[in-house]
Amino acid sequence: MPPKRNNNTNIDEEVPDYIENQSRRNNLILRRDKDDRKETWEQSETKVKEVLRNKLRLNTDNIEIERAHRNGKPGDRPRPIVVKLLRYKDKQNILRQAKMLKGTQIFINEDFSDKIRQKRKDLQPALRAARERGQVAYIRFDKLVISDRRTDDN
């Protein structure tokens, strides 16, 4: 949804961030425990497909990856792989299956602009607090959504 204009926001600041997030709409970030400093795009794509096939049990024949590459400079920490998918539906399917990675050292997340990433990071303490209170809580884009658990007393 495009940014809404109101008296408190500067549209000149909002639009570039909106455009950046739209360009990242089909992207995922894959974090693994291993990183090859001289990894090519083809090798990155192969590693992504291995995770999708072996860990998430997805049929990779129908998932088209436009590009997969490491992001950042090689160093002490493994660099994440940015995965640009051809179809948004593939991204949603992968995110639904990502729960199968629990307990592994592999993480799959959506790709957001730095501004949205910071907002999401700032919401983490409130998210944890709500969950500790027994509420259903999650972050959708840059908003914290909280609801009470419903119990069936019927």
Results as ranks from 00 to 15, higher is better:
Pro2Arg: 14
Pro3Cys: 05
Pro3Leu: 03
Lys4Gln: 13
Lys4Glu: 14
Lys4Met: 07
Asn6Arg: 03
Thr9Phe: 08
Asn10Asp: 15
Ile11Trp: 12
Val15Cys: 01
Val15Arg: 06
Pro16Lys: 04
Pro16Leu: 03
Glu20Tyr: 01
Gln22Thr: 04
Ser23Ile: 02
Arg25Ile: 04
Arg25Ala: 08
Asn26Gln: 09
Leu28Thr: 05
Ile29Gln: 06
Arg32Asp: 02
Lys34Asp: 10
Lys34Pro: 01
Asp35Lys: 13
Asp35Ile: 03
Asp35Cys: 15
Asp35Arg: 09
Asp36Lys: 11
Arg37Ile: 08
Glu39Lys: 06
Glu42Pro: 00
Ser44Arg: 03
Lys47Glu: 12
Lys47His: 09
Lys47Cys: 04
Val48Thr: 09
Val48Tyr: 04
Lys49Met: 05
Lys49Gln: 09
Glu50Leu: 07
Arg53Val: 00
Lys55Gln: 06
Lys55Gly: 00
Lys55Ser: 04
Leu56His: 01
Arg57Phe: 11
Leu58Met: 15
Asn59His: 10
Asn59Met: 00
Thr60His: 08
Asp61Met: 02
Asp61Cys: 00
Asn62Lys: 14
Glu64Asp: 12
Glu64Trp: 10
Glu66Ser: 06
Arg67Met: 06
Asn71Arg: 07
Asn71Pro: 00
Lys73Glu: 10
Pro74Leu: 03
Gly75Lys: 07
Asp76Glu: 12
Asp76Lys: 12
Arg77Gly: 00
Arg79Pro: 08
Arg79Glu: 10
Pro80Phe: 04
Val82Met: 15
Val83Tyr: 10
Leu85Trp: 08
Arg87Pro: 01
Tyr88Arg: 12
Lys91Leu: 08
Asn93Cys: 11
Ile94Ser: 00
Leu95Thr: 01
Leu95Asn: 01
Arg96Asn: 15
Gln97Thr: 03
Lys99Ile: 12
Met100Ile: 00
Leu101Asn: 02
Lys102Glu: 13
Thr104Gln: 05
Thr104Met: 07
Thr104Cys: 04
Gln105His: 15
Gln105Trp: 12
Gln105Asn: 15
Gln105Tyr: 12
Ile106His: 09
Phe107Thr: 13
Phe107Glu: 02
Ile108Met: 01
Asn109Trp: 02
Asn109Arg: 09
Glu110Asn: 13
Phe112Thr: 05
Ser113Val: 05
Ser113Glu: 09
Asp114Ile: 07
Lys115Met: 08
Lys115Tyr: 07
Gln118His: 13
Lys119Ala: 14
Lys119Asn: 14
Arg120Leu: 11
Arg120Thr: 08
Arg120Gln: 15
Lys121Arg: 10
Asp122Phe: 07
Leu123Asp: 04
Leu123Glu: 03
Pro125Lys: 15
Pro125Trp: 15
Pro125Val: 13
Leu127Ser: 07
Ala129Cys: 01
Arg131Asn: 11
Arg131Pro: 03
Arg131Gly: 06
Arg133Ala: 15
Gly134Val: 03
Gln135Phe: 05
Gln135Trp: 04
Gln135Asn: 11
Val136Leu: 12
Tyr138Glu: 09
Tyr138Ser: 10
Tyr138Asp: 05
Phe141Leu: 13
Phe141Thr: 11
Phe141Ile: 14
Phe141Ala: 14
Asp142Lys: 14
Lys143Arg: 15
Leu144Glu: 11
Leu144Thr: 06
Val145Tyr: 07
Ser147Gly: 05
Ser147Thr: 15
Asp148Met: 04
Asp148Gln: 14
Arg149Phe: 09
Arg150Ile: 13
Arg150Asp: 10
Asp152Cys: 08
Asp152Thr: 10
